[in-house]
Structure formats: structure tokens, C-alpha cells
Amino acid sequence: DRRRDYLHTLSTRLVRENQVIAIEDLSVRNMVKNRSLSRVISDAGWSEFRSMLEYKADWYGRRVVVIDRFCPSSKTCSVCGEVASAMPLNVRQWTCRCGVVHDRDVNAARNILAVGLTVAACGDGVRPPRT
């Protein structure tokens, strides 16, 4: 009940304070198959949080933009746009060729926001360039 109450409170606050909310489409079902992360992911209630965001956004006339799960949000430099070739999950900080040091999660959040705002402004179908 505490978790559900927290998720309700957080989702309501986010929807009331923002016109557009950008989230990444995560495959929670596949992520739970990882034995070392399954309990933590299940306890977080990501699927439940997403559904709360979506129906509350409908109530308040807001928009939830879901970014493709294959968008390289963690590997793309939020400053210059360079995409790193490979990045295992244990790498939490990395340095881009342009010299900027990124925290993996903060960088991903910046990229998800940028893509979400682009989709909100230009419409669906905005994808990063493929090499």
C-alpha cells in the first residue's frame, strides 16, 4: 500500500506540473528475467507507474511520449550527439570524444527528454539516424 500510495502521489505531481512527460519504453517482462535485478525491478512497480502516468495524463489533458526502447539514450552524448559503440551495464560514467564526462543515467534522461520534446513538437516517427 505504501508503494502504491507513493506511485499515485508521484504520478499525480508529475502530470500536474508538466505538459509533456517523456518516458522510455522498457521491456519490464524481459528485465525481470535477470535474476540479480528481478526483485528490485518488481519492487519498483515500473509497469504500474507507467499506467498511472498514462491514465492521469488523459484526465488532465497532458501528453505522455513513449520513446522507443532501442533508442540509444545511454550511449548518445547529450552535448554533441556522438553515439558510443558499446557500453556494458557496469559502466556508470563515460567520457565522450568531445571531452564531456557523462553519468549514464543523467545523460539518458537528457536524451529521453530531448527526443520526447522533439516527438511532441514534430510528431511521431522521429528516430535517431542509423549508421
Results as ranks from 00 to 15, higher is better:
Glu54Trp: 02
Gly81Thr: 13
Asp124Thr: 13
Cys96Arg: 01
Gly99Gln: 09
Ala44His: 01
Cys98Tyr: 11
Val126Lys: 01
Asn111Gly: 05
Val66Tyr: 01
Val28Cys: 04
Val100Arg: 01
Val20Cys: 10
Asp25Arg: 05
Arg50Tyr: 07
Ser78Val: 05
Gly81Cys: 12
Ala120Ile: 08
Gly116Pro: 03
Ser78Ile: 02
Glu54Arg: 11
Val65Leu: 07
Glu24Asp: 05
Ser74Met: 00
Phe49His: 01
Ser51Phe: 15
Ala86Gly: 12
Ala84Trp: 10
Gln93Met: 15
Asp103Pro: 01
Cys71Ile: 09
Gly123Arg: 01
Asn18Thr: 00
Ala86Gln: 15
Cys98Val: 07
Val100Cys: 13
Ala120His: 06
Arg62Gln: 00
Thr12Trp: 07
Asn30Ser: 03
Asp124Glu: 09
Pro129Arg: 04
Leu37Tyr: 11
Asn111Leu: 00
Thr9Tyr: 11
Asn111Val: 03
Leu26Phe: 09
Tyr55Ser: 12
Arg130Asp: 15
Pro129Met: 02
Leu117Tyr: 08
Leu53Val: 05
Trp46Met: 03
Arg104Leu: 12
Arg35Cys: 14
Gln93Thr: 14
Arg104Met: 13
Gly81Ile: 05
Arg2Cys: 14
Thr131Ala: 15
Arg63Val: 09
Pro128Leu: 15
Lys56Ile: 00
Arg110Met: 07
Ser42Ala: 15
Asp25Tyr: 06
Ile23Gly: 05
Val83Gly: 06
Glu17Thr: 11
Asn18Met: 10
Leu117Gly: 07
Tyr6Gln: 08
Asp25Lys: 13
Arg110Gln: 10
Met31Tyr: 07
Arg39His: 02
Asp25Pro: 07
Arg62Met: 09
Thr9Ser: 14
Asp25Asn: 13
Asp25Glu: 14
Arg92His: 15
Cys77Met: 12
Asn30Gln: 13
Tyr6His: 11
Val64Gly: 04
Arg130Pro: 14
Ile67Asp: 00
Phe70Val: 10
Pro72Met: 03
Ile21Gln: 02
Phe70Lys: 00
Asn30Phe: 10
Leu117Thr: 10
Val15Glu: 04
Gln19Glu: 14
Trp59Arg: 07
Asp5Ser: 05
Asp68Ser: 03
Thr9Arg: 13
Val79Pro: 01
Ala108Trp: 00
Ala108Pro: 06
Ala84Ser: 10
Ile67Thr: 02
Ala114Trp: 02
Arg3Cys: 02
Arg16Val: 07
Pro88Leu: 02
Leu89Ile: 13
Pro88Met: 07
Asp58Leu: 02
Asp5His: 13
Tyr60Pro: 02
Gly99Ser: 04
Pro88Gly: 05
Val32Asp: 02
Trp94Val: 03
Ile41Glu: 02
Val32Cys: 00
Ser42Asp: 08
Val79Arg: 04
Gly61Asn: 15
Asn111Cys: 01
Asp68Lys: 06
Gly116Tyr: 01
Arg13Leu: 13
Leu26Thr: 11
Ser74Val: 12
Val66Asp: 02
Asp68His: 03
Thr76Leu: 06
Ser51Asp: 08
Asp25Leu: 08
Ser47Leu: 08
Asn18Phe: 01
Cys77Lys: 11
Asp5Trp: 11
Arg63Gln: 13
Gln19Arg: 06
Arg92Ser: 14
Asp1Trp: 04
Trp94Ile: 04
Asn107Phe: 02
Arg97Tyr: 10
Val101Pro: 05
Leu37Pro: 04
Val79Tyr: 14
Arg104Cys: 06
Asp124Pro: 06
Val115Arg: 04
Leu89His: 14
Gln19Met: 12
Thr76Lys: 03
Arg35Met: 13
Val66Arg: 03
